[in-house]
Amino acid sequence: MAGSNPNAKPMNLTLKVWRQPNRQTEGQMVDYQVKDISPDMSFLEMLDVLNEDLLHQGQDPVAFDHDCREGICGSCDLFINGRSHGPEKGTTTCQLHMRKFSDGDTITIEPWRANAFPVNKDLSVDRSAFDRIIQAGGYVSVNTGGAPDGNEIPIPKDIADRAFEAATCIGCGACVAACKNASAMLFVSAKVSQLALLPQGQVERQTRVENMVAQMDIEGFGACSNIGSCAAECPVGISLENIAILNREFLTAKAASNNLA
């Protein structure tokens, strides 16, 4: 029952899916067949169909991360046919629709691969490294209450807009997954430049970038080679310019901060 296009033909597909029982056990690619997939389905709905089939057969369904299914929560994290979130540009897996595939296709589905993102099970990975990077300094230290009036500090609109563009990062990790070096620079730079651009972020500007970069390195992400895969695969279009800002912030902070450690 297709909604938009009553004539859309259902598809049969072969899926090659990474199955791994838990973090400790090594996994493998397993082949599955799915039938009668509507082109109007989202990619995750196609996986729902597979999982319902597996459950009915008494097999363990494929674990994968997802939640809002409207492209904003950043939960979904599938590496589809060799690319973060699949073939469509500027799209999360949940917003990728099956009409981008053809009947008879074989689709390879893998988890994000990075040592900093260990696999929980099957396609689900642990991205708490991102949380720890934010905890290292991705905030403005302001306690609840006592904030000045919101209009106290005017912010030029173009600066506010640029800060907003950096702030739209959904923390999905597609950048790390797509990067040849499994680098988290785009993620880190988005937060650093958001707060470096805004007047509210000035007070902790130097310590923030020093601490966040240090944490990023501790987590075991690779370095940036300015390849650009991250920005190309980012579902919300975070720009490479942010990485340049991060580098600049890091260099000036290291050169000028009073931190001797």
Binding site: G150, I155, K157, A160, A163
Partner: peptide, 21 residues
């Protein structure tokens, strides 16, 4: 107070050309 708090945290609310919210 919510607006003040969020602005202080660096939430990038939409702004007018004059820089105000």
């Amino acid at each position: 107070n919510i607006i003040d708090q969020c602005v202080a945290q660096g939430v990038p609310f939409a702004r007018e050309y004059g820089g105000l919210l």
